[in-house]
Design a protein around this nucleic acid. Structure first.
Lengths: 338, 338
DNA sequence: TTTAGCACTCTGTATTTTTGACTGCTAATA
DNA sequence: TATTAGCAGTCAAAAATACAGAGTGCTAAA
């Protein structure tokens, strides 16, 4: 449907717009990319690209700007994703190899590095915990009325919490708790720690509610925990689109209503690098932004998701290249640790 | 020096400006606050207040705006700090009583609550760890090549970290580590965990560097950790002063260069509610903002500091009232737990 | 199919005009 | 002496106007 010339010109327009943030005119295309054809020819192609929905005009006498459909074609078909410098490769390797204390920290480090290399804002969330399989549970007495509960899962996730009591706990009780929790929960998914489990423990152990209740409560909190980390939010404010106060406000709001970001990061499949352009996933607030995400998974379980959010006019080539590279590195990392 | 009328009018002007964000004219003062005197009289007083440096004029035909000196008098002498509703009191009590798992979480909860009640952005940092006294150190084996290190201090702070090794660790080694660390460090400040301590352990235990090194490294990281938490950053963007893009950008920058905020939060004395107006602590970047802080201390050790940052035209009365209340509540809380 | 050329459109900017919100001062008043 | 009415003067912000130039789309020729 689109001949080679139109594809080429579309790519050039998007490239140019990404670089300058100004509507692109036929003259510029001729000057910088197509010295051998005339601006009238370019204009003809542009008119057709607009008719087909790939370009838009802010107004009659302005240049053209890519539409969401235009960006989509650009991202899906017109780009190559090997736009990553040796320097960046070296930096990323270095960062990822500095030993993280666990997969949660690893995700954070990856997100920070991504933000540093691309100069965009990144958002990351930890693993969806509820489906992870419990490998071990450990209670440790800290003082007479305080316990630390530690849970380890099959993906290498370790979470811990402090539990406080209104009465003293004995060493024997701790041993019994360790035995019961492990016996009953090892090999089960984390979501098994629920009210019915609380009832079971209560029936079996006959400990006072003052002991059982805080434990279960804290453990449940531990599972629900879904921290979301932001990196480089201020970098975005340097971009020209943020001169529009409305846009800037929208941006802050998107980052602040964490549910929205979590929803987007959670959707999509493992290990794909996914690109959401503007309001493709019909959310009005996102219409001026694009989000690029990928999931870090071990087996069939997600252990962390990272997203980059920036203006629609973001440097997709670099962002996606770097993400693919980091994704691959994390994968290698997991295999080495097997 | 300032007679009663001038003080009264100054307070009214600041009140009015805080409410409307618009320069205040003599007419408004007469209309809303001083029906019994004429605008000419108010104008005379305003002229004198300006001469004395309490008010400023954006330009000849505008109303008056408080100067930093004006705000200072307002905060120090003209306000009463009991501007807190029963509703807010109830809400704060509820929030603080929901059991936190430790003082670090308590500080975070207090900061969040403060932001919710005042609708301003809050910033909080945890305790300065290095001077805290070690009460107990505990190592727990998690699998054969992973240890959890837990440190408890006299203020009730608990920090833990995961330590990974390249070789197996035995239960005996863990016991020995527990003994040595506690024996040598109990009663000492956290900063004692340093290179010379590493050398000592290495001499005494003769464990391989592969064991000692990761432990000390992780422990040191634990102490240095100084997280800074932001709450309600987006709320500020709703304020009219943030229509100025420059201000908005400044604000983002202030929040992002964490050192600046940490510096300000760290200064000042325990348990005072301190108010910094504009560039009083001569930092150019802060000239359009005010910061109100207080420290939560147990004994002579800070366990957390909370700050509110907003435009100079912030609702000092409410902010300071709420802060004083929260400060008192935390104090009570500590005493109860003694 | 491509291109030169030109009329037309529309925005952004600069310039001027108008409006109206306030003040400061003067002179009268209590 | 302290207050006030009244008014001229000031200045910014808004509205109106004019202008330049960037870019397109179309026509007709190559």
């Amino acid at each position: 449907m689109l001949d080679e010339r139109k594809r080429k010109i579309l790519k050039e327009i998007v490239d140019e717009y990404i670089e300058t943030a100004e509507p692109v005119s036929s003259a510029v295309i001729v000057q910088k990319y197509e010295p051998d054809i005339s601006s009238a020819t370019v204009r003809n192609s542009m008119a057709e690209l607009e008719k087909d929905g790939y370009l838009e005009k802010p107004h009659t006498s302005a240049g053209r700007v890519p539409s969401a459909k235009g960006y989509r074609l650009y991202v899906d078909e017109l780009l190559k994703y090997d736009n990553i410098s040796l320097e960046d490769i070296k930096y990323i390797q270095e960062k990822l190899e500095s030993k993280a204390t666990g997969i949660e920290e690893l995700t954070k480090i990856a997100a920070t590095t991504l933000s540093e290399v691309t100069h965009y804002t990144t958002v990351s969330i930890g693993p969806k915990t509820s489906k992870q399989i419990i490998e071990e549970i450990k209670f440790v007495l800290l003082g007479s009325r305080m316990l630390m509960g530690i849970i380890m899962t099959d993906t290498g996730l370790v979470r811990e919490t402090i539990i406080k009591f209104d009465e003293d706990i004995t060493n024997e009780q701790v041993d019994t708790l360790n035995y019961f929790f492990n016996n009953k929960l090892k090999g089960e998914p984390l979501e098994k720690i629920d009210t019915s489990f609380e009832e079971y423990i209560f029936r079996e152990l006959k400990y006072s509610v003052n002991i059982i209740r805080p434990i279960i409560e804290q453990m449940k909190k531990l599972i629900e925990e879904e921290e979301i980390y932001l990196e480089g939010a201020n970098k975005s404010f340097e971009l020209p689109e943020f001169k529009s106060l409305e846009l800037a406000k929208n941006f802050v709001n998107i980052l602040d209503t964490k549910e929205l970001m979590v929803d987007i990061l959670d959707s999509g499949f493992a290990e794909d690098v996914k690109v959401y352009i503007g309001d493709e996933n019909d959310n009005e607030e996102l219409k001026d932004f694009s989000i690029v995400t990928f999931k870090h998974s071990i087996g069939d379980k997600d252990v962390g998701t990272i997203g980059i959010i920036g203006p629609k006019r973001m440097n997709y080539s670099k962002v996606i290249s770097v993400m693919k590279y980091i994704s691959k590195k994390l994968k290698d990392f997991d295999n080495d640790n097997k």
